[in-house]
Design a protein around this nucleic acid. Structure first.
Lengths: 124, 124
DNA sequence: CCGCATCCAGCATGATACTG
DNA sequence: CAGTATCATGCTGGATGCGG
């Protein structure tokens, strides 16, 4: 069995089936926001509001939805401090951290693409 | 400027603004299907129908939408042979090919995750 | 004041049927 | 065979409100 072969085996996870590990991985992090959340947590835990604000153009609804999904998939850990005002922190788990290098490469790829196509806004 | 810093510069592309290169990269390939399409093209050109069939659970509508987007972003090349019945082939461009290693890593990550959690369907 | 659940309108998606 | 049109449906964003 080649490591690269996408058709290795079928994966079942929480009642859903995936025909390859890439489809499975994309189910876990392949949407508009989850990777961004993981990226912004790469340097350590962040407060909920701080994290949400760091991600431009995410609605409160999608932030809650995405962070819950990441939590349920064990990529992110949620820690609640019973204080007033409430304080909630999120941090990457071990598995979550293992994604950071891949996300960094994707980030780098985006930089290169933007650089080659001269997409950086002038004067910024 | 650190290479890793997500807040390097703002990117403008086809009338849309992105606050970091990762958000830009995710705009290009960060959805459920685009990465899968690129993956399946990694070994060379494929016919349209063949490519679509290789991706389980994609609707015709989303296949067309996704492949058009990849084409417009210069990640995939479309080649039409004027024969009857029509023959259309898709192939990765240079930039598209540069994404393959990253996608392979993500695939590998999904394999590892699934392996650790014993998600592979038995008897498969 | 912080975190987040709920509500509704608008948009994107899937299934099907159809054209060249 | 490749791709488009249409419609019903489900999801998403933004506003609002509630509990701690």
């Amino acid at each position: 069995m080649k490591e690269d072969d996408i058709h290795t085996e079928k994966i079942s996870y929480k009642g859903k089936d995936f025909y390859c590990s890439l489809a499975f991985a994309l189910h876990l992090i392949g949407d508009k926001y989850k990777s961004l959340i993981i990226y912004h947590l790469k340097d350590g835990p962040m407060r909920s509001g701080e994290l949400q604000k760091s991600i431009t153009d995410i609605s409160n609804r999608m932030f809650t939805y995405s962070i819950r999904a990441l939590e349920n998939d064990n990529l992110v850990e949620r820690k609640v401090y019973p204080v007033t005002p409430p304080r909630v922190e999120y941090a990457l788990t071990g598995i979550g951290k293992s994604l950071v290098p891949i996300i960094l490469e994707l980030n780098k790829w985006g930089q290169d693409f933007a650089g080659e196509h001269h997409l950086y806004a002038p004067g910024e």
